[in-house]
Design a protein around this nucleic acid. Structure first.
Length: 332
DNA sequence: ACGATTTGACCGTG
DNA sequence: CACGGTCAAATCGT
């Protein structure tokens, strides 16, 4: 039952999701930057609120470009980003091309060789179902080595930073030329909710201890305290122009309690964030229909659930998202 | 008893 | 063939 829709359709679809997720993560960083003034990103200015805002804008511009099929037009990209960011931040350096500064490489360069990187994300549904067959035991250790799926890295002084997700360790490996072993974690809900999120934690420095956590994949599970309550509802569900609201002061104001409580509980120590998103989306899922080029409900749910401690929540009612996306794409 | 962790085996990739 | 990512039986912790 293999469907073989054009890969570009699927890759674009997934890339849109990844771009949105990245934007959301950046938004969370921004909130942390506000909550914890000491946040540093990768040693450059990317940790400033302004820098993060620019990256967020770049991420969402990417999304629109992917949808429009204009992502290869780098002049267009630069114009869009710089124009937008200057309007918001009062004229900054804008979003870099992702290589400069090493933080959050953007999709338009990361995806030039996208077709060559079409590999399976480990544990797509096909593989899971395959493993439940008679070959389950025989395929022990079988996997597709991850190449460059959406990932980001944080450096922390402790290995057990609370990122508000439930992780389960599934492996530890001595890494060549590394002093410390690498630890592998998957989401606790990998099986009961088919959550694909994993992370790797490795100590990269002794004194002071620095633990590098690399996240792969996105949480599609819903295992965080009343996340739905964090979905801001201060705009009309039908107001698609505020689909993702980063500048809605009312929202932040109304949810200030949530904001501060999350920030204070999750940022316990000075957090040094090194963002190195190697932003190539990989997938060879072929079971989607062409209409899935528009984000599916699951994708949107995944996006919405991805960042549990994000104070910047989608202000859209979940039941209206498909409509909103249709409208957004049409408007773009 | 049950879930989490440990750890050696397995296997794909480069 | 070395390396690194994952599996799963054994073990541990509550």
């Amino acid at each position: 039952m293999e469907w073989s829709w054009p890969e570009s359709v699927l890759s674009n679809r997934e890339r849109v999701v990844e771009e949105l997720i990245q934007g959301r993560e950046l938004a969370s960083q921004l909130s942390k930057a506000f909550a914890n003034r000491s946040l540093v990103v990768n040693g450059d200015d990317g940790g400033s609120a302004e820098g993060i805002v620019n990256k967020i804008l770049g991420s969402f511009v990417n999304t629109l470009l992917i949808i429009n099929g204009k992502e290869s037009d780098q002049e267009f990209v630069s114009d869009q980003i710089q124009g937008n960011s200057s309007g918001v931040s009062g004229g900054s350096t804008g979003v870099s091309d992702g290589r400069r500064g090493g933080a959050y490489s953007s999709s338009w360069d990361a995806n030039h060789d996208h077709a060559a990187n079409i590999k399976s994300e480990d544990y797509n549904e096909e593989e899971i179902s395959c493993k439940s067959t008679s070959t389950f035991k025989d395929r022990r250790g079988s996997y597709k080595r991850r190449k460059a799926s959406h990932s980001w890295t944080t450096d922390t002084p402790a290995s057990n930073i609370d990122d508000s997700h439930a992780w389960r360790k599934y492996g530890q490996k001595v890494i060549h030329n590394a002093k410390h072993p690498r630890n592998y974690f998957r989401c606790t809900h990998k099986y009961n909710q088919a959550c694909k999120a994993i992370k790797q934690v490795q100590q990269v420095q002794d004194h002071p201890p620095v633990f590098r956590t690399t996240y792969y994949g996105t949480h599609t599970c819903r295992d965080y305290p009343k996340a739905s309550e964090l979905v801001l509802d201060c705009t009309s569900p039908r107001d698609s122009s505020k689909f993702i609201s980063f500048d809605n002061a009312n929202c932040l104001e109304n949810k200030q309690e949530h904001f501060t409580s999350f920030a204070s509980s999750s940022v316990k120590e000075e957090l040094i964030v090194k963002a190195t998103s190697d932003h190539t989306v990989t997938s060879h899922n072929n079971h989607s229909s062409p209409s899935d080029y528009l984000l599916s409900h699951d994708d949107l749910m995944a996006f919405d659930s991805f960042w549990p401690m994000s104070e910047f929540s989608s202000s859209i009612d979940q039941y209206d998202r498909d409509d909103v996306f249709l409208k957004m794409i049409a408007e773009s």
